[in-house]
Amino acid sequence: MIDHAHDLESVRGATERLLTAAAKMDNAGVTESSRLPGWSRGHVLAHLSRNADALVNVLRGRPMYPSAETRDADIERDAPRPLDVQLADLRDSAERFQEVGTAPADWSRTVELRNGVTDSASRVPFRRWAEVELHHVDLGIGYELEDLPDEFTRREIDFLTERFRGHPDVPALVIEEDGGRRIPTGGEGEPPLVVSGRRADLLGWLAGRRDGSALTVHGGTLPSLPPL
């Protein structure tokens, strides 16, 4: 069972780690390239702020973004801002998310995200946790997949394997963690490919952050995964 209150506290902790780390940059560092193609670090920070507000919209029953074009334009508008403005916006938007998240609500209700995707309201805090943790890594300022909390890494692997389960563009797979846990995902087929490795490397591949070269594949070659 998803514990949204626990996940809200995890979001708070992850946000504080990100704010503390990002505060060590300077204005020039904000303009440098992130690990995401075509995005500066300012783009990543701006996206995180606007995503917090978008998830507030979701929890309040409003469209996540007015449109895809508006989402992209807002990120482009906010990306060049100096570091102090970026950090203040990130902190303020994070507090708005926490405020809505701690208000009395029916957490079993279904909410709508982007592109018609629906989910339980109770999983929205975990989705935000994933945004903060993975984009902290994307900034390229010393926080790596290996530094992610163990609980988050395990749960995000579960989330992504669930997302790819039954996907027509993904062959039958078994994800095998270095601790021995095995998770089926992908489409149908026998026998499935077995992809094994460290949790950080498995998460990196599933989340599109690593090429999978550190993984071991039994029964074939490592497939390309569709974008998230």
Rank of each mutant, 00 (worst) to 15 (best):
L113G: 02
E32V: 07
A22Q: 12
L48C: 11
S33D: 14
Q98L: 14
E133K: 04
G61D: 01
E151L: 15
H47C: 08
V100A: 01
A28L: 11
G61V: 06
G29A: 06
A22S: 06
A54K: 10
P171S: 05
S196L: 05
L48T: 11
A73M: 05
E16W: 06
W205L: 00
L134Y: 06
P171G: 10
G208M: 03
R198I: 11
T221N: 00
H47F: 10
L215T: 01
E99R: 12
E144T: 14
E131I: 07
G219T: 05
D92V: 13
S224F: 01
P168M: 09
H47I: 09
H218S: 14
L228F: 08
G101E: 09
D178I: 09
A88W: 08
H4I: 00
A214I: 02
F164M: 10
R109F: 06
G38P: 01
A5H: 15
T118M: 10
D84S: 09
P125H: 11
R96H: 14
D92A: 15
S33W: 03
N27G: 11
T118W: 04
R165V: 11
D78G: 07
A88V: 11
D92F: 03
R77D: 07
A214T: 04
W107C: 05
A172L: 04
L145V: 02
R181I: 00
W107A: 05
R127Y: 09
S196W: 02
D211I: 02
R81T: 03
R155M: 14
A52C: 15
G189T: 12
L193C: 03
R96I: 04
D78V: 08
G116D: 12
A172G: 06
A121T: 02
R50Q: 05
S213Y: 02
D89Q: 08
G140R: 01
F159D: 15
V174S: 07
P226I: 01
G166H: 12
R163M: 14
N51E: 12
S10D: 06
R41N: 04
R81M: 07
